[in-house]
């Protein structure tokens, strides 16, 4: 099965492969480097004499008797209680995903099956909110939240994250539900279901692929958020990303940059696993917008 359209001269192939390799290095090297370096002491990771020290770790060897050390992790997780931020992040992401999907599937289903043209306005809204920096809304939240005394708590940040992401969630789920044939739930209606029953019995069993894809993006919004969580959470409720940012200020002065490096690596590792598991769905989700857009 050799297709002439796919036949390529050797030099071209070699060029292609080398560009791909260069790209992989550009894309992945910084992360791998930082992961490796997070097990070294600062003197090695930021070496004045020779950057190879970050690979071989002579100072780490000198200080700890091994080229690997958990010092940075111990400092971040135990001394600076980074585990609190991890727990907060877990709470925030799980809640955001659960709430926005629950509200989103109901709303997205209704939008997909409504004969009226709400979907256009929804698209416009999703577009505008996609474009609007999160910070612009946050300046609207702060003062009322102070006044109502709900500033600083996890539920507040959760509901704000859900709301800001909701136009996008609705839009994605709506276009997904549109791809489920109408016949399915209409058959259920004729067979004797109310709308809610039809949704529950006919749609819920088949909607999981789309819901999972949308959920991935909700997860990423919540997990990666910096603007909302850093402005709306009090010190002890901070999630990982803003917590790392607040590490930066203090640790740089005290010569404890490695704490921040360890914390950064701790926040990246779950994403590694995440991409490994969901690569296909992520790609299809990213392109879904382009195709249906």
């Amino acid at each position: 099965m050799s297709n002439p359209a796919e036949k390529r001269p050797l030099p071209l192939k070699a060029l292609a492969i080398s560009i791909v390799l260069i790209w992989i290095i550009i894309a992945a090297f910084p992360f791998l480097w930082t992961m490796w370096g997070s097990f070294k002491v600062e003197g090695d990771f930021f070496s004045r004499s020779d950057w190879m020290n970050a690979v071989t770790g002579p100072l780490t060897q000198e200080k700890h008797g091994s080229t690997f050390t958990m010092e940075g992790y111990e400092g971040a997780w135990i001394e600076r209680e980074f585990y609190r931020a991890v727990i907060n992040t877990a709470i925030v992401t799980v809640s955001v995903v659960a709430v926005s999907l629950t509200l989103g599937t109901l709303g997205g289903y209704a939008l997909a099956r409504s004969g009226y043209k709400y979907s256009f306005w929804l698209l416009m809204m999703a577009l505008v909110f996609r474009a609007m920096p999160g910070v612009t809304l946050i300046s609207g939240y702060m003062l009322p939240f102070f006044e109502l005394n709900i500033w600083g708590y996890l539920p507040t940040a959760i509901i704000v994250l859900v709301a800001m992401n909701q136009p996008f969630t609705l839009w994605m789920l709506h276009s997904f539900f549109k791809s489920i044939p109408r016949d399915l739930d209409e058959a259920a209606l004729v067979d004797g279901c109310s709308r809610f029953q039809a949704f529950r019995l006919a749609i819920i069993p088949v909607m999981w692929p789309g819901v999972i894809t949308t959920g991935l993006f909700s997860f990423l919004t919540a997990y990666n958020d910096f603007a909302v969580t850093s402005m709306l959470l009090s010190e002890q409720n901070l999630t990982m990303i803003p917590q790392i940012n607040s590490f930066l200020g203090s640790s740089q002065e005290e010569g404890k940059v490695m704490y921040a490096v360890a914390a950064v690596v701790s926040s990246i590792v779950p994403l590694f696993v995440f991409i490994m598991i969901f690569q296909r769905r992520l790609v299809s989700g990213l392109t879904a917008g382009a195709v249906k857009g």
């Binding site: 044939p181 016949d183 399915l184 209409e186 058959a187 259920a188 004729v190 004797g192 069993p205 088949v206």
Partner: peptide, 20 residues
């Protein structure tokens, strides 16, 4: 009346079978 209250049954073009 809602479809369920009309006492009808319907065969759809793409059948609308419950895949699960």
């Amino acid at each position: 009346l809602e479809p369920k209250d009309r006492d009808i049954s319907m065969v759809f073009q793409s059948y609308g079978l419950y895949p699960n």
